[in-house]
Amino acid sequence: MEILITRPEIAIDMFLPIFVVSTLVLVFGVGYAALITLSKMGYFSKKWMPLGYIFWALQTYCLYDLSVMIQSEPFTSKVLMIAMVAYLFVPHLYFRLIEDTDERYKDTHTTSNKI
């Protein structure tokens, strides 16, 4: 059998940081998406947008930290970082989608089953 991915040992005192960091990845991720979308929609002031980007930066850092802590291969770490750059655009695309949908369906008032 050819050599497969090796699974290095995780030190006992590394488990807590790993769990905390993986939670933070998702928490910052939601925070970023929510802040950008909500401030673009006008529920929040635009002042909050920079904080959203800070969340994105923190999320990227946490994900990088996680990949180091669980001893991912260098290739995997690079893929993750590229994914994070892609994630920078997601809330903007999401917002565009919401805006365009509202625009397109603004004259329809269907709540019943008749389309």
Binding site: I10, F15, I18, S22, T23, V25, I70, Q71, S72
Partner: peptide
């Protein structure tokens, strides 16, 4: 998510 990666899940 926090226990789904194989490195941690083992």
């Amino acid at each position: 998510f926090f226990h789904t990666l194989p490195q941690v899940n083992i």
